[in-house]
C-alpha cells in the first residue's frame, strides 16, 4: 500500500468509527434513560419520535441552544481546555481497538482497527486514559467553585488509585499474550480460552476498575449530586457540558470494548473456524459478535448504575487499595503459575 491509499483508508476508518461512536453515545443516553425507566417501572422518554427514538437529537439540540456560562472566577483557558481533553482522550483511545480480523477489500489487506501497528498497543490505552484524569482535575480546579474543586480532587484520587489495579490486571493479560498488540491478544483467545475464564480474578478486578475509571455508579463520587451538586462539571453549561457528557459515555464504550478485547475474546466466536465457512460470512459474523459483546457490556454498565448504591468515599478507597490492589497482584502470580505449568503458547 502506498502512502496515499493508506491515508485514505485510515481517514475513512476514522470517520466511520467517529460517526458510529457519536451515534452510539447519543443512543446510549437514550438507553440509559429507557433502562432506568424499566428498572423503576416507568415508561421513559416516549414523546420525541416513535418510542422516543428521536430524543437524543432533541437533547443535543437543547444543549447546543443553551447559554454558555463562564463563571466569573474561572480560569478561562483551562476551563475551556478541560472538556476538549476529555473528548480527545475518549475518541483517540479507540484507535487501537480491533473490531474484527483483517479483511481484504478491493485487493487491499485492511486491519479492522485504526492503528494496529502501534507497538505499545494496550499501553497506549493506559497512557491516554491517564491523561483523562487531567480533564477532570482541570475542570474542577478552573471552575473557581468549591464543589467543582472537591469533585476534581476526588476524581483524580480515585482514578489514580484504580489505575494501579487496572494496570496490574492488564499485566496478567499481557503476560499471557506475550505481546501488547490487541490483535494478538484477541487472536490468542480462540475457542473458550477467554481470559475471563482463564484469569477470573483479573477479570473482576479489571471490570471493577473500569467502572471506577469511567466514574460510573457505584463509583461516581466525583459528581455525587447529594453532596457536590454536580461535582467537577457543576459550572459547565451548554456545549462544554455536552463535551463531558459525551466523553463519559464514550469512555463507557471504550471500557466495554477493552473488556471485550482483553477478556471476552474480542471478535472471536468460539469454534466458528471448525465450521469451515467462507471468510465473507465469518468476518461479518465476527464483527457482529464484537458488537453484541460490546452491547451486552454496555447494558451491564447501565444496569449496574440503576441497581447499586454509591460507595462512601472511604469505602471506595478501602476497596481500591485493600482489595483490588492485592487481588490484582494475586492474579499476576496466578497467571505466572499457569504459564510456568502449561508454558507460553
Amino acid at each position: 500500500m502506498d502512502m496515499f491509499t493508506l491515508f485514505a483508508v485510515k481517514l475513512i476508518q476514522v470517520l466511520i468509527i467517529a460517526q458510529v461512536m457519536l451515534l452510539t453515545v447519543s443512543y446510549l443516553v437514550y438507553f440509559e434513560r429507557k433502562i432506568s425507566a424499566w428498572a423503576q417501572s416507568r415508561v421513559g422518554p416516549n414523546r420525541v419520535g416513535p418510542a422516543g427514538l428521536l430524543q437524543p437529537f432533541a437533547d443535543v439540540l437543547k444543549l447546543l441552544l443553551k447559554e454558555d456560562i463562564m463563571p466569573e472566577k474561572a480560569n478561562k483557558l483551562v476551563h475551556i481546555i478541560a472538556p476538549i481533553i476529555a473528548l480527545f482522550v475518549a475518541f483517540t483511545t479507540y484507535a487501537v481497538i480491533p473490531i474484527g480480523p483483517d479483511i481484504t477489500l478491493f485487493g487491499l489487506n485492511i486491519p479492522l482497527s485504526v492503528a494496529p501497528e502501534i507497538d505499545m498497543g494496550i499501553l497506549y490505552v493506559l497512557a491516554l486514559t491517564s491523561i483523562g484524569v487531567y480533564a477532570i482535575t482541570f475542570s474542577g480546579w478552573s471552575s473557581g467553585s468549591k464543589y467543582s474543586l472537591l469533585g476534581g480532587i476526588r476524581s483524580s484520587a480515585q482514578m489514580i488509585s484504580y489505575e494501579i489495579s487496572m494496570g496490574f490486571a492488564i499485566a496478567g493479560v499481557l503476560l499471557m499474550a506475550g505481546s501488547t498488540l490487541p490483535t494478538k491478544i484477541v487472536e490468542l483467545q480462540s475457542g473458550w480460552m477467554w481470559n475471563a475464564i482463564v484469569q477470573p480474578i483479573g477479570f473482576i478486578v479489571f471490570v471493577v476498575s473500569a467502572f471506577a475509571e469511567t466514574n460510573r455508579l457505584p463509583f461516581d463520587l466525583p459528581e455525587a449530586e447529594p453532596e457536590l451538586v454536580g461535582g467537577f462539571h457543576t459550572e459547565y453549561s451548554s456545549m462544554k457540558f455536552a463535551g463531558f457528557f459525551l466523553a463519559e459515555y464514550a469512555n463507557m464504550i471504550i471500557a466495554s470494548a477493552l473488556i471485550v478485547t482483553l477478556y471476552l475474546g474480542g471478535w472471536q466466536i468460539p469454534y466458528i473456524e471448525t465450521l469451515g465457512w467462507a471468510p465473507e460470512i465469518v468476518i461479518p459474523l465476527q464483527i457482529g459478535a464484537f458488537a453484541f459483546k460490546l452491547g451486552a457490556l454496555l447494558f451491564f454498565f447501565i444496569w449496574v448504575r440503576w441497581s447499586l448504591p454509591r460507595f462512601r468515599y472511604d469505602q471506595l478507597m478501602d476497596l481500591g487499595w485493600k482489595v483490588m490492589f492485592p487481588l490484582s497482584l494475586i492474579n499476576i502470580v496466578w497467571v505466572a503459575a499457569i504459564i510456568m505449568i502449561f508454558g507460553i503458547k
Binding site: 433502562i35 425507566a37 424499566w38 428498572a39 423503576q40 417501572s41 416507568r42 415508561v43 416516549n46 444496569w303 449496574v304 440503576w306 441497581s307 447499586l308
Partner: peptide
Amino acid sequence: GLSITLQNMFRPAFTME
C-alpha cells in the same frame, strides 16, 4: 441487587401518560 432490577424491567409500567 441486579436480579431485582432485572425482574423489574419485565413488569408493566405504572406511568400514567
